[in-house]
Amino acid sequence: MPDYAMEQKNCSHREQICSTRICTLTGYGYLMCQRDKRAITSSLNRAAGQVRGIGQMVEDDRYCIDILHQLHAVKAALSKVEDRVLRSHAACCVEEAMASGDPILQRRKFDELVEVFAKAKL
């Protein structure tokens, strides 16, 4: 994947400046859309608390089935966070790329989504 230079532009639906760039072959360096950041962070903190609770359940030698139920609950919570991040990305980053009219930026956003969905199949 090519190393693109930093681009800055005013977001069409936000007042702040958005920075979008692709960093290196190791991954993407885009800033997250701020609109859903608080809700996503809150959900992740809740899931982290659930994971700590599961760790305590293991330490306390709780019944395996109870632990498995809690593991399923954490997976479901993380799946919801994943859905929210994806929706946020589509409503923010992808929408901006489409509105920009820049075919290179549009292609980058499309390629990102294809790559994420390809990894999700693993």
Rank of each mutant, 00 (worst) to 15 (best):
K109Q: 08
A99V: 02
C93Y: 05
C11D: 12
G29I: 06
H13F: 07
R62N: 14
L122V: 11
R21T: 14
K109G: 05
D66R: 03
I54G: 02
C18E: 13
A47D: 11
L105I: 14
K75H: 04
A99K: 05
R38S: 09
D61Q: 14
I65Q: 12
V51L: 05
A5E: 02
S43L: 10
S79R: 00
L71F: 02
N45R: 06
I67E: 07
M6K: 09
A120Q: 02
A90S: 10
A73N: 00
D83K: 08
L122C: 13
Q56V: 09
G27R: 00
Q16M: 13
C64Y: 08
G27C: 03
R21C: 14
C33T: 01
R14W: 07
A76T: 12
Q56G: 14
E15K: 15
T41D: 14
I65P: 05
E112A: 02
D36N: 15
P103M: 06
V114L: 06
V51G: 01
V114H: 06
S43T: 07
C11M: 01
T41G: 06
Q16A: 12
S100D: 03
K9W: 04
A120R: 03
R52T: 14
D36T: 13
G27E: 02
R62P: 02
M98F: 07
R62D: 08
Q34R: 14
A91R: 02
V114M: 05
R108T: 10
F110W: 08
A39M: 13
G101S: 02
S100C: 05
Q70G: 04
I40F: 13
A77C: 00
N45C: 10
R14D: 12
Q8Y: 05
C93F: 00
D111L: 14
R14N: 11
I67A: 08
R52H: 11
R46H: 05
M1F: 06
A5Q: 04
I65F: 07
Q106R: 08
Q56M: 11
Q8H: 00
D83G: 10
R107P: 04
Y63V: 14
R62I: 12
G27I: 02
K80I: 03
F110G: 12
E7M: 09
Q34A: 14
A48D: 12
K37Y: 13
R35L: 11
E82G: 08
G27T: 01
E95Q: 05
Y28C: 10
E115N: 00
L68E: 07
Q34W: 06
H13W: 12
E115H: 00
A90Q: 06
E82F: 08
H69A: 06
C23T: 09
D36V: 11
A99L: 08
V51A: 05
V85W: 01
C93G: 03
G55L: 07
M32K: 12
L86F: 15
T26H: 10
E82R: 00
C92H: 09
Q16F: 06
I104N: 15
Q50L: 07
A48H: 11
L71V: 04
Y63Q: 15
C64L: 13
V94N: 02
K121T: 12
